[in-house]
C-alpha cells in the first residue's frame, strides 16, 4: 500500500516535471524542473527498496550534476538567449516519433513483465507445508548474489521470520516466501551493495576510475585558454 502511494505520487511528479524540462523556455527553469525529476526518481528508488541508490541519486544527480548545469547556464548568461517559440514541421514530426517510441517501449516492457512474473495461480499451487525446491533455489541465488552464507541466513534472518526455527530447510513454504521477501528487501542496504561492489564488480569499479581520470584530463584540455606567451 505504501509502495503504491509512493509510486503514484512520485511517478506523476516525475513525468510532470520531465515535461516541464522540455517545455520551459528559460534554461534555468528547465534545470530546476530537472532537479525535481531527480528528486522524484529518488522517491521511486525508495519505493523499490533501493535506499542507497536513492541517497546517491540525490547527492550526485540533484546535488553535483545539477549544480554544474546551473553554473554553466549562469556563467554563459543563457537566460537572454531565448528564441521565440514556433511550431515547426520538425517538432510535430518529433512528437509523433516520440509517441511511436513510447508505444514500442511500453509494449516491450509488458513483454518483459510477462517473461518474469509468476502467475498467482502457479504460486498458489506451490504453497505447502514444506519449503519447495524452487524457493531453495531462489535463496541460493540470493546467497550467491549478495555473498551471503547459509549459516548467516540461518542465524540472522530465519529467527526474524519465525522465532521457533533456526534452519532454512525446516521452514514452511509460506515462511520461506516471507524469508525471500525479507532478503530481497535487504538489497538496497549499503552493506550488501558495498560487498557486491568490491567483490563481484571490483574490476568494473576500478575501470570507472579510469573514466573519471579521462574526463578530468579532457575537461582541462578543452577549457584551457591558450595564452600567447604559453607557447614559449
Amino acid at each position: 500500500m505504501a509502495e503504491q502511494i509512493l509510486f503514484t505520487v512520485f511517478g506523476i511528479l516525475a513525468v510532470g516535471s520531465a515535461i516541464c524540462v522540455i517545455t520551459f523556455k528559460n534554461p534555468i527553469h528547465s534545470a530546476l524542473a530537472l532537479v525535481l525529476t531527480f528528486f522524484s526518481l529518488a522517491g521511486l528508488f525508495v519505493s523499490l527498496g533501493a535506499y542507497f541508490v536513492a541517497a546517491v541519486q540525490v547527492i550526485v544527480y540533484a546535488g553535483a550534476i545539477m549544480v554544474l548545469f546551473l553554473f554553466v547556464i549562469m556563467l554563459l548568461n543563457l537566460g537572454r538567449l531565448q528564441t521565440p517559440r514556433q511550431i515547426s514541421k520538425a517538432k510535430v514530426f518529433a512528437v509523433i516519433l516520440g509517441i511511436v517510441l513510447a508505444a514500442e517501449a511500453i509494449y516491450i516492457g509488458l513483454k518483459v513483465y510477462e517473461g518474469t512474473a509468476v502467475s498467482p495461480a502457479q504460486r498458489g499451487s506451490e504453497v505447502g507445508a514444506v519449503i519447495t525446491s524452487e524457493q531453495l533455489n531462489q535463496i541460493a541465488a540470493i546467497e550467491s548474489a549478495y555473498r551471503l552464507d547459509r549459516s548467516e541466513i540461518n542465524s540472522d534472518y530465519v529467527p526474524q521470520i519465525t522465532s521457533q526455527k533456526s534452519n532454512v530447510d525446516t521452514l514452511s513454504a509460506d515462511e520461506a516466501d516471507r524469508l525471500i521477501k525479507k532478503l530481497q528487501g535487504e538489497m538496497g542496504n549499503p552493506d550488501r551493495i558495498g560487498t557486491i561492489l568490491f567483490t563481484k564488480f571490483l574490476l568494473p569499479f576500478e575501470v570507472t576510475s579510469l573514466i573519471l581520470l579521462a574526463a578530468l584530463i579532457g575537461v582541462i584540455v578543452l577549457v584551457k585558454r591558450e595564452t600567447p606567451n604559453s607557447a614559449a
Binding site: 511517478g11 516525475a14 516492457g109
Partner: peptide, 12 residues
C-alpha cells in the same frame, strides 16, 4: 508499472 514509467520518461 515501473517499466511503463521508465518508457515514458525516456520518451520525454
Amino acid at each position: 508499472y515501473y517499466l511503463i514509467l521508465s518508457a515514458l520518461l525516456f520518451t520525454i
